[in-house]
Design a protein around this nucleic acid. Sequence first.
DNA 1: TATTGTTATACTCTATAACTATA
DNA 2: TATAGTTATAGAGTATAACAATA
Lengths: 140, 140
Amino acid sequence: MRMSLMRLARRLRSEPSSHGLSLTQVATLATLDLHGPLTPRELAVREQVQPPSMTRILAGLEERDLVTRTRHAGDGRRHVIALTEVATDLLREDRLRHDAWLALRLAELTEGEADVLRAAGSLLDRLTAHEAGVPGAAQA
Amino acid sequence: MRMSLMRLARRLRSEPSSHGLSLTQVATLATLDLHGPLTPRELAVREQVQPPSMTRILAGLEERDLVTRTRHAGDGRRHVIALTEVATDLLREDRLRHDAWLALRLAELTEGEADVLRAAGSLLDRLTAHEAGVPGAAQA
DNA sequence: TATTGTTATACTCTATAACTATA
DNA sequence: TATAGTTATAGAGTATAACAATA
């Protein structure tokens, strides 16, 4: 099934995203939405990218005023990344739009099959989170 | 769940592949294994990439003697791509190796959860195949 | 000396546009 | 004129290595 996954991943990546953000950028926003403010390193671990990649991802988000960056209180090396109101609005809108796309696809499935996919979502997260050493990762 | 998919896709892409082939290359080999000889265009449609991308994918496979290229009998414009014996050996070996990796992960799941994933595999294929207009695509 | 984060650089994969050849 | 395939080129996303600042 990994071939299926790659094909689906390509499809999702090329899905028209009205806001012009990459999927990893949206995923990063979603993670912040779920867990609250985090440091770049924590985000890199959770999104399973290297720190320099997260730097670039955050630069793009900051440029669009989707995240704010503040100094960590007790440790001057760390930055704390938080969502702006614009970002939470975008996430809500994005979810609605995507739900519409998914709904179209899921309409072709039976009830039971849809349940299978929903269940698979959380399982996939448990599998990937396991190796990254993130205990409480949840599904988006 | 699309965030989970992207993370898993990144993970799979970066999985150590002893043979040095990209996942799309392996997927192309698997498709040839499943459907028999096909033309570059047919492969591009099934793998959901553009023809020039398939050209490059095939170039890499040809270089490693994993596929052969012959002229189509009735139409001189077309090429017919077929697997070599080396490729079928590699596929078998790859499957074993990957099964081992998957087995480790699946060991963390219950029986029912594993069934969910297996079922999801074929569903994902039906979803992606639908949009690409490939009627009889199967899971790998 | 170790850690957080960034900058500089390069690589992989894929795409679009333009070209060649066969039909 | 239309189609199969290729070549040329560009862009997105990520990685590694080297560096700056703070602990």
